[in-house]
Computed example of a mutant assay.
Amino acid sequence: MTMLRDQGIILINKDSEISSAAVVAQVRRLLGMKRVGHCGTLDPFATGVLPVVFGRATAAVPYMSEYDKEYRCRIQLGSSTDTMDREGEIIKQAPENFDASKLEDPSYVEQLLNSFLGEIKQQAPLYSAVKVAGKPLYKYARQGKEVERPWRTVTVHSIKLLGIYHREGFELPCLDVLFSTSKGTYIRSLADSIGSKIGCYAHAAELERTACGPFTLDQTVKTADLFDCFEGLGRDSKAFLSASIDEGIVKATLTAFAGFPTQAVELSDAIKLTHGQEIKVFPDDITLDTVTFTYNNVLLAVAGVNRGLAKVKRVFTDSSAEFLREGSIDEDI
C-alpha cells in the first residue's frame, strides 16, 4: 500500500497510569507535529490498543469513533468502588452470608454474564470524561457535587469467560472476561453491574483493549520502543517518521476504513476529488452513505453517493501530492 509521508496512524499499546491525551503529547513530540489526535479514549488505568492519528489522518477520527471494540477485563468480585475500578475507594463489600460456592461453577457464571448480551442502557460513570454543561463528570466528582449523569444505549455483541481464578489478598475470585461491544460501552460499568447481579459487588481490576475496529493488539507498539528509536536517530523527527514508515509502524490512513465500500478512480477524477469536486462514477441507481475513493491505493477522499453522483465529505490528499503529479499507472477499477 502506497504511503504518504505527511499522515498516518500509529497503533500504540498504551501503558497503565497514563492518560490517552498524554500519549498523544508523546507522539506529537516524536513527530514534531501539532496535528495529532487519538481514537477512543482509554482510562488511565487501562492498557491496550490506542490508535493515534497525525496529519490529514486526523480527519478519519469521526469514522473511527464508530468502531466496535474488544476488551479483556479482570473483574474482581467482592467489592465495588466509587470509580468502578481498582483506582477508587471501596464503597460496598460482599455481605457476610454471601454463598461464594456458586462462583466456582463456570456454567453459572457464564449464564449470568450472558444476561448482559444485546442492547443495554448504561449511565455514564461519575468518574469519566463525559461532559455535562461543558464540564467533565470527573471534575464534579472531585468537587463532591451531585449532577445528573447521562444515559446511553450500547450493544454487547459477545461475552466470553476466559477463566475464574483467585488473586492474593482477595477472598472472592476474579473473573477473566472478553467483551466485544459497540462504541461508547463502559466496561467498568459492566463490571460493576455484573457484581451487583451476582450479589457480591465487583470492580474492574484490570482492563485491556484488545481490538479497536480493524486494529488489534498484535499490531501495536509501545511508546518506550518509539522513544528508543527516536533517541537512536539523534532525536530527528523527520528521520524517525521515515524509519517508522519503512518499518511498518505507521499505517496508511486508508486502513482506518477497512470494511467501507472503496472505489478506485482514474487520474482526472482523482484530481477533482482532491479539490472537493463531485464526480460521476456509479450508475444512477447507486446510493451509498460513505465510500472511500483511491488512486494508486492512496486514500483521496470520503464521499457520499446519491444516484451515482459522489459528493465529497472529507479530502485526505492534497492536489499537489507528488504521486498525482507523476501521473503513474492507474489502479485496476
Rank of each mutant, 00 (worst) to 15 (best):
F215W: 02
T216S: 00
L217Y: 05
L217M: 07
L217V: 03
D218K: 09
T223W: 12
A224P: 02
A224K: 05
D225W: 07
D225F: 10
L226R: 07
L226E: 01
F230M: 02
E231C: 00
E231P: 00
G232I: 05
G234Y: 07
D236L: 02
S237W: 13
K238H: 12
A239Y: 06
L241K: 13
L241I: 12
L241R: 07
A243G: 02
A243V: 06
G248L: 04
I249M: 14
I249D: 03
I249R: 13
I249Y: 06
V250L: 14
K251D: 10
K251Y: 15
L254P: 09
L254I: 13
L254D: 13
T255P: 08
F257Q: 03
F257E: 00
A258D: 15
G259V: 00
G259Y: 04
G259N: 06
F260D: 01
P261H: 10
T262W: 04
V265I: 04
E266A: 11
L267K: 11
L267I: 14
S268H: 10
S268P: 03
D269L: 03
D269T: 09
A270H: 02
K272L: 09
L273F: 11
H275Y: 13
H275A: 10
H275I: 03
H275V: 09
G276F: 05
G276V: 12
V281H: 12
F282G: 11
D284G: 04
D284E: 03
D285A: 06
T287I: 03
L288T: 09
D289L: 01
D289K: 12
T290L: 04
T290E: 10
V291E: 14
T292F: 15
F293E: 15
F293Y: 15
T294R: 11
T294L: 08
Y295R: 06
Y295N: 06
N297R: 06
L299E: 04
A301K: 05
V302K: 00
